[in-house]
Computed example of a mutant assay.
Amino acid sequence: MSSIVIGVTLGDPGGIGPELAARVADDPPAGVSPLLFGTEAALEQGAVRAGIDAAALADRLRPCPGPSDVPVGEPSRAAGECALEAIRTAVECAQRREIAALVTAPICKASFALAGVDHPGHTELLAKLCGADRVGMVFVAQGLRVALLTTHISVAEVPERVSKGSVLGCIRLLHGALESEFGERDVPIRVAGLNPHLGERGLFGREEIDSIAPAVEAARNQGIQASGPDRIEEVLAPSGVGTPLRGVVALYHDQALAPLKMIHGLDMVNVTVGLPIVRTSPDHGTAFELVGSGRASVAGMSLAMEWAKRLHRVREARRAGRERAGHGTGNLAQ
């Protein structure tokens, strides 16, 4: 099977993104032809830090506008501007199907803010650029597909975002994405509770009673294998090889990410579901303290590319099925 072209943004130029992107471009996974998005200066600096000849990667770069003088190891407006332009350009290429999927290196949300970007992270920005009404952040780890009800908000705001409608919407989004984007059918979905001891029958909060349990019941009435509310340590318990796949709805960012990162480390990928394009990313950040140290692992980026390839194949199989049924054709980025 021929290689597919996967776009890779360089991320925040002041972080480890450029050097990791240079490394995956120099030694990509089988069946993948990477196309990098960022400034020439960022790629050159990243290649130097990775010990790679930047000239050898020149034909793999789609240059994007942005400042060439970017502070390293800290947030900056210049870094935010570079990262934004790379994402915009890559999304446009994905929408034209010039690339089969998009893998994003980490950005710094503080750099985004300094650059005046009115979105706290990739997920929200990609939804805006793609005109997607309902997107979700789903983390993929061994035996788990974990969706977040809320993403980049204060913990203090979480309870007011937990309603029967919002929880049901997240369950339905995950259920639909597992079938249509992952090609995984009949996956049970467990929903986490919010309060200590699941609220202890309302003693420590009523979200489980008033919002989560009714949402689970409504999902079950719609034919979804949903259950909960359950304790987070139960729904995220490590899965062994051969254990049935399960979906999880967690209610806020660190409820899921803290235990997941402790258990799975870099063996986890972030997937944005609900987009018209495939987007994945590693589950780590810019790691300013590791820039140029040689200690930043490329494992997360490589795994994100493997998942991007896999999810692209699922979409192409569905597209081929529609075309056989007479619903049109399209250019393939391969």
Rank of each mutant, 00 (worst) to 15 (best):
G292Q: 05
I212K: 13
A115N: 09
L236Y: 06
A132V: 07
G38S: 03
R172M: 13
R220N: 06
M301Q: 12
V8R: 05
S166K: 08
T104D: 00
M137Y: 04
R145A: 02
Q222C: 04
L43M: 15
R295Q: 09
A320E: 10
V103M: 12
L290E: 11
V314Y: 10
L36Y: 07
G169I: 05
L203N: 12
C130R: 05
A115W: 13
E181V: 03
A113K: 09
G223Y: 12
P63N: 08
A94T: 03
G131Q: 08
S2P: 14
A213E: 15
R145P: 05
S211Y: 10
M1G: 12
Q334N: 06
A30P: 00
I16D: 09
L20W: 08
I171F: 12
A94W: 08
E81M: 11
S163M: 03
R318T: 01
L125R: 14
I209K: 11
G321F: 01
C64L: 03
A94K: 02
G46R: 11
L236I: 01
D53F: 10
R319K: 12
D267C: 01
A55H: 14
I277D: 11
L20F: 08
L174A: 01
P34W: 13
I212D: 02
E74F: 00
P196E: 10
G7R: 13
K309S: 15
L102R: 02
H122F: 03
I16G: 09
T329C: 01
T39V: 04
L84I: 01
A250S: 14
R88K: 15
I87V: 14
R185P: 05
E233H: 13
R318N: 07
H264R: 11
M1T: 06
S302E: 07
G223M: 08
T243Q: 11
H253D: 15
A317K: 02
D27S: 10
V146L: 13
E306W: 08
A86M: 02
V72I: 11
E323W: 06
D53K: 05
V271I: 07
T39Y: 15
A218Q: 09
G116D: 10
P120T: 14
L194D: 13
V248D: 07
H327W: 04
